[in-house]
Lab assay of single mutants.
Amino acid sequence: DEEIEKWIETLLKRNISLRVNGKDLEIGSEEFKEWVEKFIKEV
Rank of each mutant, 00 (worst) to 15 (best):
I16M: 02
K33R: 14
R14S: 15
E2L: 11
E42A: 12
V20I: 05
F39I: 10
I16D: 08
F32M: 03
E2I: 10
N15H: 14
I4V: 09
E31Q: 10
I16W: 01
I40C: 13
K13L: 14
E9Q: 07
L25H: 06
I16T: 09
K38Y: 08
T10Q: 12
D1R: 14
E3L: 11
E5V: 15
D24L: 14
L18D: 01
N21V: 02
L11A: 03
W35V: 02
K38N: 08
I27M: 05
E42P: 04
K13P: 03
W35G: 00
F39A: 04
V20F: 03
R14E: 15
K41D: 03
L12D: 02
R14K: 13
K38A: 10
E37G: 09
L12T: 07
K33I: 12
E42V: 08
E9G: 03
K6I: 07
L18H: 03
E3R: 12
R14H: 15
D1Q: 11
S29H: 04
K38V: 08
E2R: 13
E26F: 10
V36G: 00
E37N: 10
D1C: 15
G22T: 01
S17T: 11
L12A: 05
W7G: 00
S29E: 03
G28S: 03
I8G: 01
K23L: 07
T10A: 11
E30Y: 07
V36F: 07
K13R: 06
W35I: 03
S29I: 08
E9N: 04
N15D: 12
L25V: 09
W7V: 03
E26V: 12
K41T: 07
K13V: 13
W35R: 02
G22W: 11
W7R: 01
F39L: 12
K23E: 04
N21P: 03
L25N: 01
E26I: 13
F39Q: 03
I8P: 00
V36A: 05
F32T: 00
V43I: 13
L25C: 11
E3V: 08
L11M: 06
F32L: 06
E9Y: 05
L12K: 06
K33E: 02
K38G: 07
E2S: 12
E42G: 09
I27W: 05
L18S: 00
K13Q: 07
S17K: 14
V36T: 02
S29N: 02
W7T: 01
R19M: 05
K6Y: 12
V36H: 01
I16Y: 00
D1H: 10
E3M: 10
K38I: 06
E37P: 01
F32G: 01
L11S: 00
G22C: 13
E34L: 14
E34G: 09
E34M: 14
G28Q: 03
K13S: 12
E2F: 09
I40E: 01
E30R: 09
G28N: 08
I40V: 07
E26G: 04
L18K: 01
L18R: 00
G22V: 02
K38D: 06
K6D: 08
I27N: 04
D24M: 13
E37L: 13
E3Y: 13
K41F: 06
R14Y: 15
G22D: 05
E9L: 07
G28T: 08
S17R: 07
V36D: 00
K23I: 12
L12M: 05
E31V: 05
E30N: 11
W7E: 01
G22N: 04
R14F: 15
V43M: 13
E3F: 10
F39S: 01
K23T: 04
F32Y: 06
S17I: 12
V20E: 03
L18T: 00
R19K: 11
E9F: 10
K33C: 14
L12H: 02
S29C: 04
E2H: 10
G22F: 04
W7I: 06
S17L: 12
N15V: 15
G22R: 01
I4R: 04
E9V: 06
K41H: 04
E42D: 06
E2T: 11
R14A: 15
I8F: 05
L11F: 14
K33P: 02
N21R: 01
V36C: 15
I16S: 06
E30F: 09
E31A: 12
K23R: 10
D24T: 08
I27S: 02
S17F: 06
W35M: 04
E3N: 06
R14D: 15
E37Q: 13
F39D: 00
I16N: 09
G28E: 03
D1E: 14
W35H: 02
V43K: 05
V20Y: 04
V43P: 03
V43F: 14
E31I: 08
D24I: 12
E9T: 05
I4W: 14
E9I: 11
V20D: 02
L12F: 07
S29G: 06
V43L: 14
E30W: 11
E26L: 08
I40R: 06
D1N: 11
T10K: 10
V43Q: 08
G22H: 02
E37D: 07
I27R: 06
E5N: 11
S29L: 15
E31T: 03
R19W: 07
L12W: 04
R19E: 06
I4E: 02
E37R: 13
W7Y: 05
K23G: 02
V36Q: 00
L11H: 01
S29W: 10
G22L: 10
G28M: 08
E42C: 15
I27L: 10
T10G: 06
K33L: 13
L11I: 12
E9P: 00
E30Q: 14
F39G: 00
I8Y: 04
I8D: 00
S29R: 04
E3H: 07
E31P: 03
W35K: 02
T10E: 14
E26H: 10
D1S: 10
V20C: 15
G28H: 04
F32D: 01
E30G: 08
E30M: 12
V36S: 01
R19G: 04
E34F: 11
E31C: 10
I16K: 04
T10S: 14
K41L: 06
L11K: 01
K23H: 07
V43N: 05
